[in-house]
């Protein structure tokens, strides 16, 4: 190359360099399987866990399968994510996509276009609005999370008692969880004193719980639905010195809560998993498509596992930010 450019005009040399560069990239791409992973940026705790698990899975998979190249991109909004998808296809020329859509509706068509470009598509957590686009669907089970939580509270209270519910941000996820919960406790003598939105946020959880405590002299259990909310609730209950009166059920599998369960904290007897590590599951399945001869297409719904003191150590990741 250097010898050539001595003889040829500079411009031609430059053109050659560019052409050769492309050829090199193309050659590499033929050798390596590229998997693009598009997820929301780490703007809240659960998404932070998501990012961490995605990063861990990338290291693990690339070490195990040298012919895999995993590219993780994060987006701060649906529009940005749609742009990311275009770039993954046109610039990175991926073979497969693992996507956790920011929102279902706006990203349905962008993901569809990736599929139409002939890529293998795995959708995580939030389903698309049109059926039949994705090859693999991996998700937690929101109604099941609600149901399992209701089942535990029902059992603990012997079907009788007063509870309060702290909801998340008003979305489909929140609706599904609450519906699952309410259906499970229907017909029992459990009275839901009130439900308020605490927006999956610690500070809001703290303040809403403070107000519930002022308002209701007797609360037997709190369904916080989410571990961030649960942390705020714990502080509020401790401040009011009413920890003996009630117990709290969160959700997701945050390490702080899992730790409390593991340590046998009476206030937090269990946690219900809705693990951000589902992204790792999705990446594993997608990788298998290229490294094994087994069929992987289909729907994978993760159970809403109940974490108890006995099994907590299996779900405790002290290095994860979540």
């Amino acid at each position: 190359m250097t010898i050539k450019s001595k003889f040829l005009p500079g411009i031609l040399g430059a053109a050659c360099a560019v052409a050769l560069g492309f050829a090199a990239t193309a050659a590499q791409a033929q050798e390596k399987i590229k998997i693009g992973v598009s997820i929301p940026a780490a703007t809240h705790g659960w998404a932070g866990g998501l990012n961490w698990h995605a990063g861990e899975a990338e290291k693990r998979l690339e070490a195990a399968y040298p012919n895999l190249d995993i590219i993780i991109v994060t987006a701060n909004g649906a529009t940005e994510q749609a742009n990311d998808l275009e770039d993954l296809v046109s610039v990175q020329n991926i073979d497969a996509l693992v996507v956790l859509p920011f929102e279902s509706d706006p990203l349905t068509v962008p993901v569809q276009q990736v599929k139409q470009a002939g890529k293998f598509v795995t959708v995580v957590d939030r389903g698309l609005s049109l059926p039949g686009i994705e090859d693999v669907y991996v998700a937690g089970n929101n109604p099941e999370l609600g149901r399992v939580s209701g089942e535990y509270i029902k059992g603990r209270l012997d079907g009788k008692g007063k509870i309060v519910i702290l909801r998340g941000i008003p979305t489909v996820i929140d609706e599904e969880r609450v519906e699952g919960f309410l259906a499970e406790i229907e017909g029992t003598d459990i009275e839901v004193l009130d439900m308020k939105h605490a927006n999956w946020n610690r500070d809001d959880g703290f303040e809403v719980m403070q107000d519930f405590l002022s308002r209701f002299p007797q609360i037997d259990a709190v369904w916080a639905q989410d571990d961030d909310i649960a942390l705020g609730v714990i502080e509020a209950v401790n401040q009011a010195d009413r920890a003996d009166e009630m117990f709290i059920v969160g959700g997701a599998g945050m390490k702080d809560i899992i730790k409390r369960v593991m340590d046998g904290d009476a206030l937090v007897p269990i946690d219900v998993l809705y693990p951000p590590s589902m992204i790792a599951t999705a990446m594993d399945i997608t990788a298998l498509k290229f490294v094994s001869n087994g069929a992987v297409e289909g729907r994978y719904i993760l159970g809403a596992t109940v974490v108890t003191q006995e099994n907590a150590s299996n779900f405790y990741f002290p290095d994860s930010p979540f």
Partner: peptide, 11 residues
């Protein structure tokens, strides 16, 4: 702050 917390929560 997101960077310091690796996107998660600093406790």
């Amino acid at each position: 702050v997101t960077y310091m917390a690796d996107g998660g929560t600093l406790s």
